[in-house]
């Protein structure tokens, strides 16, 4: 009988690449973002056309650029991990520095995107003391019946100067999440 016969079965957690804590973080992020995405899709069930119009206010190209930045940053971080495992300090630092730099690029691009959205009046409507706390416009501003009223609240929640500047209405609460 050898010592291997008495060895406890190897846990799957021991096979995970990297530290266990980073996997806790990854699973937590997946759970939070997954729940958020499903919540968006559930909200979309109630007003698909309004949701589509809200999406038109966002920067699809900018979102793609940001994805490229994140994908490249992740690639550099993964490369840094491999370099560290091989004991190469210089390349590890270089890859990590570039990954961090792309993180800053992401923040700058996101900041510009948000600034532009805010300048166009996108975001949560201003609340008044009599308004509900649901993020919607006050009841007094709701149209009772009009063409396109299905897109409420956004068609009525944007100040006129912003509407004239953009050429279209905007301002649903869900667009604030970018």
């Amino acid at each position: 009988m050898t010592t291997q016969d008495h060895a406890p079965p190897r846990s799957v957690l021991e096979d995970l690449p990297g530290d266990l804590l980073i996997w806790v973080l990854i699973v937590s992020e997946l759970a939070v973002f997954g729940a958020g995405l499903l919540a968006f899709l559930v909200v979309r069930l109630g007003d698909p056309s309004g949701f589509a119009a809200a999406q038109d206010q966002l920067h699809r190209v900018s979102a793609s650029i940001n994805t490229v930045v994140l994908v490249t940053s992740g690639w550099l971080a993964a490369r840094a991990t491999r370099e560290a495992q091989a004991g190469r300090v210089g390349p590890t630092r270089l890859n990590l520095a570039l990954a961090g730099l792309l993180g800053i690029v992401f923040l700058v691009l996101k900041g510009r995107e948000y600034a532009d959205a805010i300048a166009r009046g996108l975001g949560t409507p201003r609340r008044t003391p009599s308004s509900p706390s649901t993020g919607c416009s006050p009841a007094s501003t709701r149209p009772t019946s009009s063409p396109g009223s299905s897109s409420w609240p956004w068609s009525r929640s944007v100040p006129a100067p912003i509407r004239s500047r953009t050429g279209r209405s905007s301002g649903t609460w869900w667009t604030s999440s970018g």
């Binding site: 995970l16 690449p17 990297g18 990854i26 690639w75």
Partner: peptide
């Protein structure tokens, strides 16, 4: 690939 799960098929 990035997170290396290809090496741990069960996970």
């Amino acid at each position: 690939r990035y997170l290396g799960l290809a090496a741990v098929p069960s996970v």
